[in-house]
Structure formats: structure tokens, C-alpha cells
């Protein structure tokens, strides 16, 4: 396969970015998208040019590092995939592929296709935990959790923190990310104790860091590589509302 690439290049957070055009020959349809970029970089370096910077690590859709906006979709073509699961067989010979970083106020570009997702860590620090120190835990079997709740909590907990939900949203909202963590912990007895604080604090931090409000369009759900549904956003709204009207803790 021969492909044309239109890739966002930006030297540093303050520099002005631009699209750069590349052509790549001899692309094997069985290559992963990341391996295609590897071979592009191999070629660029040999030609004495600057390589394209992009985040990636585990290559099995669990670390959440990869974050490419391919042909207008976070993580490119395919359902419930992260960038590392996209293969070149999804593209046509001769096709032009546009690759951009996540575009969101909360995720400033660091270089080329790499963005700063520190904001997610900050939101987690605002309440994405159960306040328990090592050594304080009761016997795990003394906390009975119904299989239905455990499975539902797991579905929410499957979030890999990649930020595709934010990138997909025209408001750059982080609602799905926050909803996943708030829901996971609210569904489990262990997390219920501080559920109110958690919902209020995480939402406040999300707003403070420049993420927009929910559009209700569901784009986040469509692009989430782990298939996390917007029913969790409904759960978050409920948790948040109840917490807002409830007694202060």
C-alpha cells in the first residue's frame, strides 16, 4: 500500500503548529497504525529529518497512552478501539490520512501529536479514591457486593483515561471520564461513604480545569475504546444532584 499523511507538527507548547505532508510506500495492510508511524519515523530519521512525536506504550489498549485523532475521529476508524488497535487494513491504498493530537483546552499540545493530560490526574486527586490507608481494610468478604453491582462497577472502572471522550466532544467535556470513576465507586459499598464529596469535588475540579459541559450528543460513548456508556453520565448527574441538595459532609 501507498499512503499519504497529513500530520500535525508543533515544536513545543508555545510554537505555532501546522500540517506537514508525508508519503509512505510499502505499507503492509497487516501493520498496526503505530507501526506504520514507526516506519515513517525510521524513514524520516534516515533522511535527516525530524521524527513525528506521538504517545504510545502498551499496544494492547489498556495503558491509555495513545491519543491520535485520525481522519476526524479519536482513535480512528473502528468500534471500541484505541489507536494501537487500528490496523492499516482499515485504510485504502492511496488514501490520505489526517492525524492530529487531541484538541481540547484541558489538554495542551506538548509536541506534535503529544498532549498534556495532567488534568485527568488532577481530577482524580480531587476525589477519585476511597479514603483508606494501608492496613485499615476489613476482610474483603465482610463487604458483600452483589454480582450485578460488581459487574456494573467493573464496566465503569474499565476506563483507561485516554481522553478520547474529551477529544470527541465539541464542548471538550470530561463528563464521561468523571462519570466512570464516580459511578464505579458509588456502585460499591466501599465507595458510598464519601460518594457525595467525591461527586461534588470531581465535578468542580473538572469545571475549574477548563472542560466544558455535557452536550448530550453521545459522541464520547461512540468513541470510547472501552465502550463506556453515557448511562454513567446519567448516574453522575444523579449523584451530583443528590449531593448538591443533601446535607454537607
Amino acid at each position: 500500500m501507498k499512503i499519504k499523511l497529513n500530520i500535525w507538527k508543533q515544536a513545543n507548547p508555545k510554537a505555532k503548529g501546522r500540517f506537514e505532508k508525508y508519503e509512505l510506500d510499502g505499507v503492509d495492510p497487516e501493520m498496526s497504525f503505530l507501526e506504520m508511524l514507526d516506519s515513517l519515523n525510521e524513514k524520516l530519521i534516515k533522511e535527516g529529518k525530524d521524527a513525528v512525536a506521538f504517545d504510545h506504550d502498551c499496544h494492547e489498549a489498556i495503558c491509555g497512552c495513545c491519543s491520535l485523532y485520525i481522519n476526524g475521529r479519536p482513535h480512528g476508524p473502528g468500534e471500541e478501539v484505541a489507536t494501537c488497535q487500528v490496523h492499516m487494513r482499515a485504510f485504502k491504498d492511496g488514501e490520505t490520512i489526517t492525524v492530529e493530537p487531541w484538541r481540547a483546552k484541558g489538554f495542551p499540545v506538548l509536541k506534535d501529536l503529544i498532549v498534556d493530560r495532567n488534568a485527568f490526574d488532577k481530577i482524580m486527586s480531587a476525589g477519585g479514591f476511597v479514603s483508606i490507608d494501608a492496613g485499615q481494610a476489613p476482610d474483603a468478604n465482610s463487604i458483600l457486593v452483589s454480582k450485578v453491582d460488581a459487574d456494573k462497577a467493573f464496566d465503569a472502572a474499565a476506563c483507561i483515561g485516554c481522553g478520547a471522550c474529551v477529544a470527541a466532544c465539541k464542548n471538550s467535556s470530561a463528563m464521561l471520564f468523571v462519570a466512570a470513576k464516580v459511578s464505579q465507586l458509588a456502585l460499591l459499598p466501599q465507595g458510598k461513604v464519601e460518594a457525595k464529596r467525591r461527586a461534588l469535588n470531581m465535578v468542580a475540579k473538572m469545571d475549574e480545569l477548563g472542560f466544558g459541559s455535557c452536550t448530550n450528543t453521545g459522541a464520547c460513548e461512540v468513541e470510547c475504546p472501552k465502550g463506556i456508556g453515557i448511562d454513567f453520565i446519567a448516574k453522575l448527574n444523579r449523584e451530583y444532584l443528590c449531593a448538591s441538595f443533601g446535607e454537607a459532609e
Binding site: V130, N141, I143, L144, A153, F154, Q184, Q190
Partner: peptide, 21 residues
């Protein structure tokens, strides 16, 4: 103790229908 600790943190381990691990 690790399983106790992780469970208390909200790690959603698989459960039986009776609610145990």
C-alpha cells in the same frame, strides 16, 4: 491482606451471586 486492601479501595473484583469473592 492485599485483597482486603484493594477491595476496600473499590477494586471491583469478580463476585459470586452471594456477594463473596
Amino acid at each position: 491482606a492485599i485483597i482486603d486492601q484493594l477491595t476496600a479501595q473499590g477494586v471491583p473484583f469478580a463476585r459470586e451471586y452471594g456477594g463473596t469473592l
